[in-house]
Amino acid sequence: MRARATLVGGTALLLTAALAAPALAATGGRSDGGRPGTGHAATREAIEEAVEAGVPGVTATANDTHGTWSTTAGTGDLRTGAPRSAADRYRVGSITKSFVATVLLQLEAEGRLSLDDTVDRWLPGVVRGHGHDGRRITVRRLLNHTSGIYNYTADEDFARSYFLRDGFFRHRYDTVTPRELVAVAMRHEPDFAPGTSWNYSNTNYVLAGLVIEKVTGHPYATEVRRRIIRPLHLTATSVPGTRVTVPRPSSRAYSKFTEPATSRTYDVTNLSPTIAFSAGEMISNSADLDRFYSALLRGKLLPARQLKEMKTTVKIEGAPNIGYGLGLMDTKLTCGVHVWGHDGGIHGSASSAATTADGRHSLALNFNGDWAGDTAAVIEKEFC
């Protein structure tokens, strides 16, 4: 799995493809359209390169001190030829983790839990089996992926059922409970003893969602809506639960699964997001993600102490330019600029959101294909 990890990770591989690259279109609050000399020309070039590399379509929105700028490229619907829209809603995958961590940090600020509470305090007996022990793992270690808990999406049977072609089309509408997701992980040994290393595990954030529910008495989705979505007026953002469709406006999402790049492209838009739960089920659009991360980094969602905790990172082996905090990644770009945010991937969708430390410059983008392109290259061009 890449250091800038996503829900699907190493199972739904990002493969190459050869699709035509339609002309780039610009929309949004600024009229410069990303022309040379206006600040976004390099970003548009990187987006165009992604489509040339095989991504069906891209939507992106940036916000800075000069205003809001949006652009689209490629196709939103391969059947009809409809383009992508700057207002497209899409599955954000593991970007969900930033929302979940924010809620837990708010609960800490309210004195309702401590990040140093054990998982077992809130979920007694849930983390047990094959060496897993929730009495030795803190909530903090869930959020920064130092728990050692096995990643349920790495389980071969789970991957075969939900991430490979035949299994996906048999099981795409299955409803899976979060306890069942945790149980998959408990069938394996831990990756390491708590606190001794780092490994991205979606199981950590399924458990984090369950902790929120135990502390508040409400579904984690209710707390995300009440504490973040409504106060920030994120009108395109939702926690779908068992809803299998993506609200409009939206584009279709496509995958080639693990087949050769020249193979058929499959429409995977509709699926049960319960396979992700609080590790990656949310839906949003680029403007909402910019607003969320900008508000977060500006201290509008967390007191200074909790924001500092969130930004306290651990090193990721093999990725010296990336540190992982509490549901938030710090990436040092090649030009020396640091951006904070997260990546997210789920069937047919690859997303990234990045914001400067002062919250004044944000970019969020989405590819509606999961086998080609590099969202990190777009971020480099926007901020460097």
Rank of each mutant, 00 (worst) to 15 (best):
A350F: 13
T222V: 15
S362L: 04
R160W: 00
E317R: 07
H347V: 02
R128D: 04
A82V: 08
L301N: 10
I212T: 03
S238V: 13
D77T: 07
R4S: 03
V182A: 10
E189C: 01
S278G: 04
G344H: 02
H361K: 14
M310A: 04
K97I: 01
D64F: 07
T235N: 14
R298M: 07
D358K: 01
G341L: 14
T72R: 05
I275R: 15
D155C: 06
C335A: 02
F168M: 07
S161W: 12
H342F: 11
T118Q: 07
S352L: 13
S272H: 10
T11K: 11
T334V: 03
T375I: 00
L164M: 13
A41W: 06
V182F: 08
R305Q: 09
G34V: 10
E382K: 06
D191T: 14
F383M: 08
Y200H: 02
Y220H: 09
P219M: 12
P219T: 05
G345Q: 11
R89D: 12
A221D: 03
M186L: 08
A364I: 05
T38C: 14
D116V: 10
G33E: 12
D374F: 08
E259Q: 15
A353Q: 13
F99M: 11
T237S: 14
E110C: 05
L105P: 02
G369R: 03
T11H: 01
T153N: 01
L123T: 04
D358G: 13
W198K: 00
G57R: 09
L328D: 04
I316H: 01
D64G: 13
A23W: 06
P194N: 08
N285Q: 09
V58C: 08
T262K: 15
R291N: 11
T216S: 04
H130D: 10
E180F: 05
D157P: 04
R170S: 10
S147D: 11
V378Y: 02
G29D: 14
T356M: 05
A357M: 01
I316S: 00
F192N: 08
H171C: 05
L365H: 03
R84A: 15
P56K: 15
S284K: 01
N199H: 15
A25P: 04
T269W: 00
A261N: 09
G359Y: 12
D174S: 04
A46Y: 01
N204A: 01
Y152F: 12
G195T: 05
T59I: 07
L234T: 12
G336P: 03
T59F: 03
Q106A: 02
A221L: 00
R243P: 00
V246T: 12
L78R: 06
S98N: 10
V211S: 08
R225C: 11
S98Y: 06
N151L: 01
K311W: 00
V100M: 01
R128C: 05
E281G: 07
L13S: 12
Y150T: 09
A5N: 02
H338A: 01
T355K: 08
A236L: 11
S255M: 00
V268A: 08
R30L: 11
D157K: 14
T153P: 09
D174V: 05
G39N: 09
D288W: 13
V139L: 13
A41G: 11
D155V: 13
A25L: 12
A86G: 15
